[in-house]
Design a binder for these strands. Structure first.
Lengths: 252, 252
DNA sequence: CGGCTGTAACTGGTCCGACCAGTGGACTAG
DNA sequence: CTAGTCCACTGGTCGGACCAGTTACAGCCG
């Protein structure tokens, strides 16, 4: 077990980085929980024995990572935020903008995740949860008469229910994040579609078919339907050569 | 389209935020490209007409987002970094730590992702890529005689090849991240297993079966095998009640 | 003339002290 | 008990200062 000593390249650790680390560690250990407050900047200056500039740089990093939020004048100090997906989403959007992440990759990811979630859900679902799914279908139908945004929200609720039934919050979060990224990338195009009402009705119809398959207990068919639907819904925004990769995802 | 005026809650925009925005915009527009350099902090002070503290806070945010890197003493100024997924990964690790993900959720996620990637890979793989897979098998076999760490590394290489063949870097990133989290959670237990050599040999055998199915073009079987293998490999560390959820993932 | 070295001009990291607009709670007047 | 005032304190920004380290260049030596 004692190999020859592999020395690590030493690089200077900035003071503000160590502050960030300490806060994140406290958060990971549970010493700090969302909703709690950090001491004021001037108090942190005393505790960490650094200057206010250093404390502030650390706070800026934490803030940009979605860990805390500072509000001027708040006597309670910076607030520890609950975890949110916005930072995660921001990073994905950034990657997508520079083509490190193509739209087809994002959609392919969703096809996989959503299909898998539906498959598991069709096996684990209780009768109550099935009813819950069908309620969201009703809500989607009603939202069509409002506007696209409402429909999109109802659709989100449907997929959230699915993800929850699948007993895997990681799936749920990933789905949410990627869905948000996809929408920010093509929302303008969708909004400009003339036949948006027809699209919504078709999408609703597809969702209903999926639920039907779930009720029948045919997870295999339900998952395939879901993937097919997502492909139909988004394929138009994906350049042709990449569509083949997506089509490979439909069948199993 | 003209609804009643929905006023947005107005919040003060900090100066350093606007600097961040300007830099990111220049990056998105292509005025700034990876490898280029930003002016020195003191020069930015002049250009943005703010104090150095403000410039530095902006740079810290950009740095924590993986956009630039500052090195002390570098006369060329901060460097624009190529886009990488490390920032995305950082956020995911944070998600995994904060969101109280259970081991079974993480493993279930991997079963889904890896299975899907293998399925797609078995359809899209070229002969060269198949050969590449088989090379990693050889490397895994050799690594068994070294130690568990080497084997783990070779295993990682295998899954990386799979993810790459699946033409979806998001799958690759997610797999990497979740795999890392799982390993940090149970690596000690695995290391203490007496029969680790037997486990490694068995794992290698399973991988070989998967590759065989891929070569035969049976993505369905390959994916099922992969999920089964992962279940067998990790199920021992998952409490019984949650295992059922995982078993639901094996069949499709 | 080429290679090495020492230096000087810069860089980023950190500190200090100061000012401002705004917040929120305590305190007071009704 | 309520409504209004006030003040201590907050975060945001500024300007200046010092330090250790890097880099490029000029000049020295071989």
């Amino acid at each position: 077990m004692t190999k020859n000593p592999r020395f690590q390249p030493v690089q200077p650790v900035r003071a503000y980085q160590r502050i960030v680390e300490q806060v994140e560690e406290a958060l990971a250990r549970g010493d700090l929980a969302p909703g709690q407050r950090l001491p004021s900047e001037r108090e942190l200056v005393a505790q960490f024995a650094v200057s206010r500039s250093t404390v502030r740089e650390a706070l800026r990093v934490l803030e940009s990572n979605g860990v805390v939020r500072s509000r001027p004048g708040d006597p309670n100090g910076p607030e520890i935020l609950p975890f949110s997906q916005t930072a995660l989403r921001k990073q994905m959007v950034r990657l997508a903008r520079v083509d490190e992440l193509t739209l087809s990759e994002l959609i392919g990811f969703r096809m996989i995740m959503d299909g898998a979630a539906i498959q598991v859900a069709s096996r684990l679902r209780t009768p109550e949860e099935l009813a819950e799914m069908e309620e969201t279908l009703v809500a989607m139908r009603a939202a069509i008469d409002v506007d696209f945004e409402a429909f999109s929200e109802a659709d989100l609720a449907f997929h959230d229910v699915i993800a929850r039934i699948s007993r895997n919050s990681l799936i749920q979060t990933c789905n949410d994040v990627v869905r948000g990224v996809v929408l920010t990338l093509i929302s303008d195009k969708i909004a400009h579609a003339q036949n948006s009402r027809a699209l919504m009705l078709e999408s609703l119809q597809h969702h209903a078919e999926v639920v039907k398959a779930i009720r029948a207990g045919d997870g295999h068919a339900a998952a395939r339907l879901a993937r097919q639907n997502m492909y139909d819904y988004y394929a138009g925004y994906v350049p042709e050569p990449e569509r083949e990769t997506l089509r490979a995802l439909i069948d199993d």
